[in-house]
Design a protein around this nucleic acid. Sequence first.
DNA 1: TGTAAAATGTTGCAATTGCAACATTAAACT
DNA 2: AGTTTAATGTTGCAATTGCAACATTTTACA
Lengths: 211, 211
Amino acid sequence: MISPFQNISLKNREKLLYTLESSRLTFPKNQSILSNINRGNIIGIVVKGMMQIIKNDYDGTRTIIEELEEDDVFGTDITPLSNEYEIVTKEESVVYIIDYDEIKALELENKKYYSQFIKNLLEIVLLKIEEKNNRIEILTKKTIRNKLLEYFNIETRKTKTRVLNLPFSFTNLADYLAIDRSAMSRELKYLKEEGFIEIKKHKITLLYDKY
Amino acid sequence: MISPFQNISLKNREKLLYTLESSRLTFPKNQSILSNINRGNIIGIVVKGMMQIIKNDYDGTRTIIEELEEDDVFGTDITPLSNEYEIVTKEESVVYIIDYDEIKALELENKKYYSQFIKNLLEIVLLKIEEKNNRIEILTKKTIRNKLLEYFNIETRKTKTRVLNLPFSFTNLADYLAIDRSAMSRELKYLKEEGFIEIKKHKITLLYDKY
DNA sequence: TGTAAAATGTTGCAATTGCAACATTAAACT
DNA sequence: AGTTTAATGTTGCAATTGCAACATTTTACA
């Protein structure tokens, strides 16, 4: 995880946040934060705590899209923030909210830490985009089995092992893969029966040779 | 379309490219360019011409993922570039290839145009990420009909009209939505029959009220 | 620690979809 | 201009999947 304030001294960080006219907001546990924030072109930075981006479907289903922790960045473009989405604190959390126009207006020749901040944001956003590409790669697979296998491949490529610890519940995995949970459960059963994988709690072990 | 060289003079742009040790490469029409480039952590900028990012499926299907034109940026993270992908010129094209590590190593206090370049890249990447979010929003819909309707909504939201000119073929649309072309064709027929849409060539008119 | 809520496993069944195969039309190329 | 190639439209059919409904287990929390 890269901090947006990487290589910026605490003092300069404060000056930067002042220049950007950022607001520092504190929210109690289990509060929806976007209702309190003007949903314009903003970038948020998590200072402390934990939050979840939740999608509310028209039928009332609530899906966890992403978890945000310290140093995580969210906001316009980076994360979807239309009115179907909300961000909810899972513990007391502190965030900075910055108007993206203020970032665009930064006069770069003035201070090195202005530029450093932008550079950090670029790096963070490039990592985010990689995640999105991965998800697209999975979602474009046509069958549940292929979605699962692609997910396994991508995740184990990161750790270079055959073992994969689900960072969330199977219910959330089904949401991530955009498939029905029970159908996924069925397919996982088949994969186990056919000897491709082994599952213990949230630990999945691949028993096949990756291509 | 934002140019990565926005607000950078031609002279500074040359200095920048020199500092970044970029290569300027020219390719004839219908050539695969990645075979000539070290697929490391690179960022490419299209100077002139037109190229397509093609995905080769294991079964031999070739799918157009994205078209790249002047000022377009591609490369690590921004666009998927694993070995399943290739970039093919559709006309004679000129590109700059830059090692991403060189960008990371830029000493920002030295020159304003270094920072300006990073800032431009940030803006470009934020736009790309928005596109990816849109596509994910579509791909997570469960039925073909809902994928189509979501696509229509997103595209017409951009232009604020009820009319939508497909920027590509229906075959490509099916790929974009990750659905079978003939099944999509069938669903479009139903949508026409039920009076939701009207299609003339590649122009789709929405006849329903958007939510 | 006891209880409510959430997650998981399972299955039948209907609906949706992918696939194959083909005819027709449009576009690209020499 | 003529020919090859790609795109489009259509349909039957089998396979996959979503959905509903339920039992069981695990987790959260008062």
